[in-house]
Design a protein around this nucleic acid. Sequence first.
DNA 1: ACGATGATGAAC
DNA 2: TTCATCATCGTA
Length: 166
Amino acid sequence: MKLKRKFFNRNTVIVAQELLGKYLVRRVGGKVIATRITETEAYCGRNDLACHASKGLTERTRIMFGPPARAYIYLIYGMYHCLNVVTEKEGYPAAVLIRGCELANGPGKLCRELKINKKLNGIDLCGSKELWFEDRVERPAKINKGNRIGVDYAGKWKDKLWRFYI
DNA sequence: ACGATGATGAAC
DNA sequence: TTCATCATCGTA
């Protein structure tokens, strides 16, 4: 069953944890790939110095300021893409980074495997036939927590335990 | 430990 | 227009 917008229109830290165990589904051409999400990170608003939206509303970050459940995708280190899903009400810039799944263990590899790139930036993950999230019946897993990766510049925000994995 | 590789935002 | 930085990965 597809996750609805309501699921994403909530506190980002909650959404990041509840996305664990859900399925990311990608259709490219006639092929459908579904893979279970194993690692996420929460990026929470303008005050969070690790969040791109701490720079304010720019061309890049405007997707995060938009309505929940849209894809925020950007190029990182000149060669990899990262997939995020926008959370919280429109106007509040926050998102969950999908860091890993059963098919691939890092955000860059995940996007490479699923053929996710900036062409999908901004799409509605509730209305898309190319990329969406699904809930499948299964036992809830134990959630581990840690610090977010690669954000040592973010002052006190770098120590937030906003990375979740199973 | 480090280089690949290019978009982004801030400074000038 | 230039410059430092970067939510990574593969090779060493």
